[in-house]
Every structure is written in structure tokens, then in C-alpha cells.
Computed example of a mutant assay.
Amino acid sequence: MLHAVVTGNVWATKRVEGLPHGAFLEVQIEGTDSRLIAFDVLGSGVGERVLIATGSVAAAWFPGKPPPIDALIIGAIDDPASAG
């Protein structure tokens, strides 16, 4: 699992058939200069810290035939200062 920060949206008006509803977001892996495109079903926004699952685990989360996704945003990292 990776920690990352959402850095931008990736607009893809044409998609392969069978891709679930969600958005493509560009993320930067924390502590590196590495960026990747992750699929988001949570509604994450730019600047938000997120957790990323990669590889076959990312695609296996979806029911039925796994979609062609190899990076999936699976959670938002809460700011400890704002936690109740």
C-alpha cells in the first residue's frame, strides 16, 4: 500500500467498455518524485492524502471481471489534528 497526495484530475472522456464509474486522478507518492494515475471511487480531491492499493489487488476489489486498473484509491488519510 502506498501513501500519496492527489495532484490533479485526468480527464478521459473515452474509456474502455466495462470500466466502473469513478475518476482518474494523478497522485504523487509521498516522500518521492514518483507520480502515477490512480482510479478513484471515493470522490477524492486535489491536495487530499490518500492510500493506494496497486497491482492485481486493485482490480480484484471490483465484482465480476476485473477491470484494467492497477492503482486504486482505497482510503483517505485523516489529519490527526482534525480527528475528534
Rank of each mutant, 00 (worst) to 15 (best):
M1F: 08
L2F: 14
L2Q: 14
L2V: 05
H3G: 05
A4F: 13
V5Y: 03
V6Y: 10
T7I: 14
T7A: 08
G8Y: 09
V10G: 01
W11H: 15
A12I: 06
A12N: 04
T13S: 07
T13I: 04
T13C: 02
T13P: 00
T13M: 02
K14L: 07
K14C: 00
K14P: 00
K14G: 00
K14I: 06
R15V: 05
R15A: 04
R15Q: 09
V16G: 01
V16A: 09
E17S: 10
P20M: 07
P20T: 13
P20N: 01
P20K: 07
H21G: 04
G22V: 04
G22R: 04
F24S: 08
L25K: 15
E26G: 01
E26W: 13
E26C: 02
V27S: 09
I29A: 04
I29D: 00
I29R: 13
I29S: 00
I29W: 03
E30R: 14
G31E: 06
G31P: 06
G31T: 04
T32M: 03
D33W: 05
D33E: 14
D33N: 13
D33G: 08
D33C: 00
R35F: 08
R35M: 00
R35Y: 11
L36P: 12
L36F: 10
L36R: 14
I37G: 03
I37Y: 06
A38P: 10
F39T: 10
D40L: 06
V41Y: 03
L42F: 11
L42S: 00
L42C: 01
L42N: 04
G43Q: 11
G43E: 03
G43I: 12
G45E: 08
G45F: 03
G45V: 08
G45S: 12
V46T: 15
V46H: 10
V46W: 02
E48M: 13
V50P: 04
L51V: 15
I52A: 02
A53M: 09
A53F: 03
T54C: 12
T54E: 11
G55R: 05
V57A: 15
V57M: 08
A58W: 12
A58D: 10
A60Y: 06
A60M: 10
A60H: 07
A60I: 02
A60C: 01
A60D: 13
W61L: 12
W61C: 00
F62V: 06
P63K: 06
P63Y: 07
G64F: 05
G64T: 12
G64S: 01
G64W: 12
P66F: 03
P66L: 02
P68L: 12
P68K: 13
I69L: 03
I69H: 02
D70A: 03
D70Y: 11
A71Y: 10
A71R: 04
A71P: 12
L72V: 15
L72Q: 12
I73W: 08
I73G: 07
I74R: 09
I74E: 03
I74W: 09
G75I: 12
G75M: 05
A76Q: 08
I77R: 01
I77A: 09
I77K: 03
I77Q: 13
D78Y: 09
D78Q: 11
D78I: 14
D78W: 13
D78C: 05
D78F: 09
D79R: 09
A81V: 14
A81E: 15
A81K: 11
S82W: 10
S82K: 15
A83Q: 12
A83K: 14
A83W: 07
